[in-house]
Write a protein that binds this DNA or RNA. Structure first.
Length: 475
RNA sequence: GGCCCCGUCGUCUAGUGGUCCAGGACGUCAGGUUCUCAUCCUGAAGAUCAGGGGUUCGACUCCCCUCGGGGUCACCA
């Protein structure tokens, strides 16, 4: 496999959402898989939509997900600069070549005039084609008007790694703008120049560019440039299943998922599974699996819906597979406030008990709070418990007293606790559903918790007895 | 409207003419794992393969039409 040079070329207009990340991931995979380079290029030629902080935010997001780039605006590289606004003179040079070759001309119309042409075409239910209004003898371009490409309408055929073999007729080829009247190039022109100068081999981008690809082919020809490998990604859909996932549907900033405690690798595995699989029944992919098995040709052509439930499941799998020490590090910022004075050893023991229950790190506080603080006694917990509510208050109190007595003699080692709990079942002739529930509620005051013996062992003797006493006092 | 693309369980998907009265996973439901929650295990429901025509001995797979959805037709990317 030849080393590929792929790039991710976002427009800095806001944060990165799942669709953008998937495109970045696939481009990254193509590069890593082939031992090539992954390049970040900032396409900031639209001054109106430009958001100052967006570039840093995008870089941060990419790094946070472990999608490191080898060349980019902040780290440079052999073919920089990697920000289009810093490359204006380069586009001018290439534009000059086109002008010399008679393949570019000054647009003589005002925006209003062009708009009128467009309206007329629309009214006639015809596609708008600028070249139908091409001036017979254009004036020399002075840089104050748009510079247009002089296209040579013809049919185009090309291969898209994802979409397959595509072809269109000459009717879609038009004289698009190369350089805008503000001196900035359009995407259509700039990306082709940049990809050539940066020796990009794989152009991986959203499906919205498929219809303009014939125009790009026309430009490649005019510039005598080889056409890179092209791959168009289908959209990630919102809940409706028809529209692209939008902010309204909760297309969150990917950093938000990380803030909620989703693991980068889990997130990547899930995102990759949206439209891609390796043809086997494997559902979960590690980063290494992905690098090893990914191929553009196996990307589904249809759009895929974003399913948060499946994301949560995926994340749960990764959390459970993580060695405790690694999980401990990744959740360090998610502990409840009450845990701030707790020791690492204690926290580690708590974490071991909830590892199976964690879907994402942000759930940690609700799952573990009672390990760090005495929750207020909550009578509804046993008064409305399906098993416990069958017993009278006195019966419950007696049972709890008996339990306290036995636990008071325990060393609170797991073995001893297990033995005692079992003996208590014998002694009281109660089902675990009754006795264990009672002790569990008394010692946690929480609606749910890990296994009883485990919980008691971690809580320790002093805390456990104190909580039992607190409950007894209310009965 | 023109051009292009897409259409398999609720969801993500396997499937490239026969091994598919369509397989896996998520989700849902039921049962089991000494208590709750979760994990784990078992099982169930769930897709007339968008619809209709062909081609073929045989079509989810090939062709045509229809329907539905999407993209595009910007001095946005």
């Amino acid at each position: 496999m030849k080393p590929a040079r792929s790039r991710f070329a976002p427009s800095p207009t806001g944060y990165l959402h799942v669709g953008g990340i998937r495109t970045a991931l696939f481009a990254w995979l193509v590069a890593r898989r082939s031992g090539g380079q992954f390049i970040l290029r900032i396409e900031d030629t639209d001054r109106a939509r430009h958001v100052a902080e967006a570039e840093q935010h995008i870089i941060k997001s990419l790094r946070a997900l472990g999608l490191a780039f080898d060349e980019g605006p902040d780290i440079g590289g052999p073919f920089g600069p990697y920000r289009q606004s810093d490359r204006l003179d380069i586009y001018k040079t290439w534009a000059e070549r086109l002008i010399q070759a008679g393949r570019a001309y000054a647009d003589p119309y005002s925006p209003e005039q062009v708009e009128a042409f467009r309206k007329a075409a629309q009214a006639a239910k015809k596609p708008f084609l600028f070249r139908e209004h091409r001036p017979a003898e254009p004036k020399p371009w002075d840089g104050t008007t748009p510079l247009r490409f002089l296209s040579e309408p013809k049919a185009h055929r090309w291969h898209d790694e994802v979409m397959g073999d595509l072809h269109t007729g000459p009717e879609v080829v038009d004289d698009f703008i190369l350089i805008k009247s503000d001196g900035y190039p359009t995407y259509n022109f700039a990306h082709i120049v940049d990809d050539a100068e940066m020796h990009i081999t794989h152009v991986i981008r959203g499906i919205e560019f498929v219809s303009s690809t014939p125009n790009f082919m026309n430009l490649y020809e005019a510039l005598n440039l080889p056409v890179p490998i092209i791959a168009s990604m289908p959209p990630i859909l919102g809940p409706s299943g028809t529209k692209k996932l939008s902010k309204r549907d909760g297309a969150k900033d990917v950093l938000d998922y990380l803030r909620d405690g989703y693991l980068p690798d889990a997130f990547l595995s899930f995102i990759a599974s949206l439209g891609w699989n390796d043809g086997t029944e494997q559902e979960i992919f590690t980063r290494e699996d992905l690098i090893q098995k990914f191929s553009l040709a196996r990307v589904h052509r249809a759009g895929a819906r974003f399913d948060e439930k499946r994301l949560a499941w995926t994340n749960g799998i990764f959390i459970r597979q993580l060695p405790l020490d690694e999980l401990f590090v990744t959740v360090q910022d998610f502990w409840p406030d009450e845990a701030k004075d707790a020791g690492d050893d204690y926290k580690r023991r708590v974490l071991a008990l909830v590892q199976d229950r964690l879907k994402f790190a942000k759930e940690l506080p609700e799952l573990t709070r009672f390990f760090f603080t005495d929750l207020p006694v909550n009578p509804t917990l046993w008064q409305e418990h399906t098993q416990l509510k069958k017993l009278s208050s006195d019966e419950l109190k007696t049972l709890l007293l008996q339990s306290r007595e036995s636990l008071a003699a325990s060393d609170f080692g797991l073995d001893d606790l297990t033995t005692r709990l079992n003996a208590l079942l014998e002694q009281t002739q109660q089902k675990p559903a009754v006795l264990f529930s009672l002790i569990r509620i008394a010692t946690t005051q929480a609606p749910f918790s890990p296994g009883l013996a485990d919980t008691l062992a971690v809580l320790g003797k002093q805390v456990s007895l104190r909580r039992i006493d607190a409950m007894l006092a209310t009965m």
